[in-house]
Design a protein around this nucleic acid. Structure first.
Lengths: 215, 215
DNA sequence: CACCGAACTTACGCAGCAGTAAGATGAGGG
DNA sequence: CCCTCATCTTACTGCTGCGTAAGTTCGGTG
């Protein structure tokens, strides 16, 4: 039960780029564990086995350090999502792949998803914008697929995508926090099925329908 | 364009309970606008037309003040949700009512929903627990309905409920932030339809199904 | 009308933490 | 072997903002 990252080798000098990578890793751990506000620059430096001014030789301030991480992981999520949707032409498979991508993102990379989904700095415009932009880009990727294969209006497709992304994000986060009760695979499949049942064949039913009542 | 709340009557003495209510209202405005961290006790006091120590005669500290508001609005949401689900026996109607309740909650009460859904204090256990508890209670209300009318297993029903609540929360928040593009009514209906198509008749299809591919 | 207690004020202590001089240290080239 | 420059350290400053000590005003009651 020692520190998970390298506080190892306290007192070794590192070339610039290597040190920078390590500082980012240390910062991620601390920001994820404590959130932005409770994270102290001293602790980040400590965890990297280095003193505070070194941190300031690599990043102009706490905010920029945080934004670098946020940017990196936001991009990673969108990219994962894009790959998932391009991985197949079958829309049923696309839904599965898309949810899998969300769950993978949440399950991976030292819980970095908390920076993107649970930032305690959303009141800062720069952060809010980045978060929302990421969310929207994911939704837009899905919206494009929906529009492409249906006659749903742009506006409706957009809102439906938002709802689906919200569903993915929420269930993935919940699943991770209550690990152990359900394997990732089962959780993904279940939620993907819910989503697929929701959107598939949307064209065929129109606004007035009652759709039975079996629940 | 004066201050929306009562900084009016600076210098009037108020009986204890009345002052308390007013302080809570002032605090809500500031916490909603700035978030917990950026909210200053001085500003809250100012907005109530009073000096800081008065605040401390009503609440032991910033945190307790915040928790009082969080508690109040969390309870309101769960209650709204409970009423919605009890308002009818028709499950299709229940879904509509449930989403409507979410949208109403988000649309109402000076954006108090931001305290419950977008708190920048989630890293504090007390706050995290309250938020998650609220979320779970909403899901549980829905889960109970699902289980009651289907043969879905408890675990599956629970995860499905989580997904649905996530969908509601996300779409309601998104809808509010991008007001104007769609009327509340339309947004509610659209998302409710997505949800209903997702869960209704779940029993009839089983795990292996392909369910067509019309998108 | 004098007194009392609740409601309120000004003015400060104090702690945590981002960011910054100014100086030490060590690896590599001449 | 010594000079240089990048890397790193110790030790500080300054600010912001919560919480409080001590003193003031005003409505009501005997």
């Amino acid at each position: 039960m020692t520190a998970p990252s390298d506080a190892r080798a306290r007192g070794t000098r590192l070339p610039r780029v290597r040190r920078r990578r390590q500082l980012l890793a240390a910062a991620q751990e601390v920001f994820v564990a404590r959130g932005y506000h409770a994270a102290a620059m001293d602790e980040i430096a400590d965890r990297a086995g280095v003193s505070k001014p070194v941190l300031y030789q690599h990043f102009p301030g706490k905010l920029e350090l945080y934004l670098a991480l946020l940017e990196e992981h936001s991009e990673a999520l969108v990219e994962k999502q894009r790959e998932a949707l391009e991985s197949t032409d079958d829309n049923r498979q696309r839904v599965t792949a898309s949810f899998q991508a969300y769950f993978d993102f949440v399950a991976g990379d030292g819980e970095a998803f908390r920076l993107v989904f649970e930032s305690d700095l959303r009141n800062l415009p720069a952060v809010r914008e980045k978060s929302e932009e990421t969310f929207q880009r994911c939704a837009e990727l899905i919206g494009k697929v929906i529009r492409q294969d249906t006659s749903i209006s742009d506006e409706e497709a957009h809102l439906l995508s938002i709802a689906l992304v919200g569903m993915a994000e929420t269930s993935a986060r919940y699943w991770l926090n209550n690990h152990g009760s359900v394997p990732q695979n089962a959780a993904e499949q279940l939620v993907a099925r819910l989503a697929w049942r929701g959107i598939s064949g949307w064209d065929l039913t129109r606004s007035g329908e009652e759709d039975g009542d079996g629940d």
